[in-house]
Design a protein around this nucleic acid. Structure first.
Lengths: 222, 222
DNA sequence: CTCATCATATGACCCGGATCATACCTGAGT
DNA sequence: ACTCAGGTATGATCCGGGTCATATGATGAG
């Protein structure tokens, strides 16, 4: 909506570690791709062509299952990079990516990215930092998905999606992030609403009682 | 059992990327810690003191939940490193580690590890490679835990644990790796046994029909 | 050899949540 | 204004699998 919403390339993960001269050199090779809500940036299994970074808006990475279920792995916002690992290694995206809102992404050709890393190996530390953090998150989610009940996982997903007390997500978005169904997401959110914890609207959720939500997200409930 | 079971330091992740001179220099700082089955190497939340590598045997990383459930995140074998991310970053282990079998681990002090990385930044690529692979696995497990039924997850856990047609694991081990309960693991494995897919013993499982098991592990079952 | 401990095994029960069906609401496009 | 797709809502039903109880077989320590 408001246009000053995004970040500068110098603030983005990886790029912010570049010196001014390096950045100047690489900036010309970075192209911008606007995307709409729901627009797929790449599909799982496609050869990794770019390193991506988000200038404005949000992108989710997700995986589909054989039975038609979709699971959101992570939702990324301005300044966050993705596709780095695949660009670095095997050459195939391990998950699909699509716009959660409209926005703009930066793309850096795989080769340019690799060349930069070869020239300045310590830049790898920056990438490693990002990947490490994602690994930490993914593991925590494995633990949560292993035993936590749906309300707990939905509370977590809701909290992750909340900015300034409000989350711009549909019940389906939350269901796919929490590994459950739309119907369950709706029912659970209605209960939260009954308990004055949230206020539900179409396409968004307002958090009224953040501590209570946090309590539910923190597992171990009766 | 047989003593030639382990690997050499030059074959271990990270260390194998070192030059002969670097290895010689660091080898004196690497200490060996034998461990028994079930012996905890470190607990979640403790300050990360070492970079670990496995010389012989197997180690699992796991997380506990408030409700007492334990979830195995990954099982590592000879040559594989762990604790690297925590040694590199925050300074706290994000998960606990314990011996799955008896064995021997190498430990390199955090500072020595960081010093080596600072001297030879491209070594970070080696670490990044490892972490990337773990991230890929963790995400796939998030997807699986989100929707796959218990038999599918148990088949996956069983296949991961199998070496040469046999897995040296208890039903509890499999349950914790698959995010289910011991009772369910037992029942499901009994069904596999009824279907001539496996042969169950105490503390180990022999795989008779690997294709059938693979089929079940591949999600989408009726 | 004996005992304590853990692994395996099985039945009974129940509940969370998936599935299926249906309906209303809301916003965007023609 | 009308239509239509997607979001929200709710009930009915069913079942996978968690929980509890109990029993026996294997194993290692003393």
């Amino acid at each position: 909506m408001r246009s000053g919403d995004g970040v500068d390339l110098t603030e983005a993960e990886f790029f912010r570690a570049l010196s001014a001269s390096q950045l100047a050199r690489i900036a010309s090779q970075v192209i911008e791709k606007p995307f709409a809500r729901g627009r797929v940036l790449f599909f799982e299994g496609q050869p990794a062509e770019y390193l991506w970074a988000i200038r404005r808006g949000a992108v989710r990475q997700y995986k589909g299952s054989a039975d038609g279920h979709v699971t959101t792995l992570e939702v990324l916002g301005p300044g966050e990079i993705f596709g780095a690992v695949s660009a670095l290694e095997e050459g195939n995206y391990p998950a699909s990516a699509e716009g959660v809102s409209e926005g703009v992404a930066w793309c850096l050709k795989r080769n340019a990215f690799l060349k930069m890393l070869a020239e300045e190996p310590w830049l790898t530390v920056e990438v490693l930092r990002v990947v490490s953090h994602r690994l930490h998150d993914a593991r925590e989610r494995v633990r949560s998905f292993a035993h936590d009940p749906a309300p707990t996982r939905l509370a977590q997903a809701l909290m992750r999606a909340t900015r300034d007390g409000e989350a711009r997500v549909t019940r389906r978005d939350l269901a796919e992030a929490a590994g459950t169904t739309v119907e369950t997401a709706i029912r659970v959110l209605r209960n939260f609403e009954r308990d004055q914890i949230i206020e539900g609207k179409v396409g968004r959720v307002r958090v009224l009682d953040e501590p209570a939500l946090s309590e539910i997200a923190g597992s171990s409930r009766s």
